[in-house]
Amino acid sequence: MRIINQFPTRRSRLILGVVPFAAIAVIYALASRIRLEANPADRLLPAFSSMFDTFVRLATEPDRRSGDIVLWTDTLASLSRLGLGLGIAAAIALVLGIMIGFVPKFRATLAPLVGAMSLIPPLAILPILFIVFGLDELSKVALIVIGITPVMTRDLASRVADIPEEQIVKAQTLGASSWAMTLRVVLPQTLPRLVASLRLALGPAWLFLIAAEAIAATDGLGYRIFLVRRYLAMDVILPYVAWITLLAWLSDLALREFAARAFPWSKSGGGL
């Protein structure tokens, strides 16, 4: 039988899915064990138990210096920057995307600019952002917005441009104004794509958030990782990476659920 026609059973699928994770855990545990036996104070590959203890401490005990419970203040700071950045980016992308995709004059004016903007590597203009927006919250949110908006805008604009011409013609025959068509024809078909686009932007948004926090900050998940890197505290870094992965996965899941509930008719919301 051809390999593309061989389907694993439900149980096999589960086992096969777990195998790579288990293999990585075993590789890590062994390597960590070997290093710790040679040097019990080794910081490079801490044991799972010490990472767990550190994580619990960060999540429950107030910090010696600031009195804050570090994990939650970091998470709150990072998530609010991320949420603000994603929200602003989504709003701009929606408005610009519809304008560019739906109104030919706007397309002629803005499409080349957005196209060019989307090619600027955001991390390359980081020093400029810091000088223009200062070192506080604004520049971190701005980096996320600048990083993901152009791509989202292009995505939405092409989605709007893909709306079948027949629908537009029909709406016009029924006497709809441009504004009415925007609200009743274009917007409902664009919103599900906006959520899908946001989901795809989550990865880059986290990247820009961590990069901004690494350079100048007083709190945040990226700040903590780059701070404790100074003394090789892998027992903090690795759990933080796992925590960020979990948060990213949860936010992706939340957006997917939201899309499935809010736009049950749409194909671009649910699924993967």
């Binding site: 694993p8 096999s12 195998v19 293999a23 990585i24 062994l30 390597a31 070997i34 290093r35 040679a38």
Partner: peptide
Amino acid sequence: KLSSWTRRMVIGAAGAALALGVAAGGTL
């Protein structure tokens, strides 16, 4: 009851993981 493919994957991964783990820890 598992197919031979699944079995081979599990055994292969376990072997590779052990070898890699020892190798990674060995860079002392």
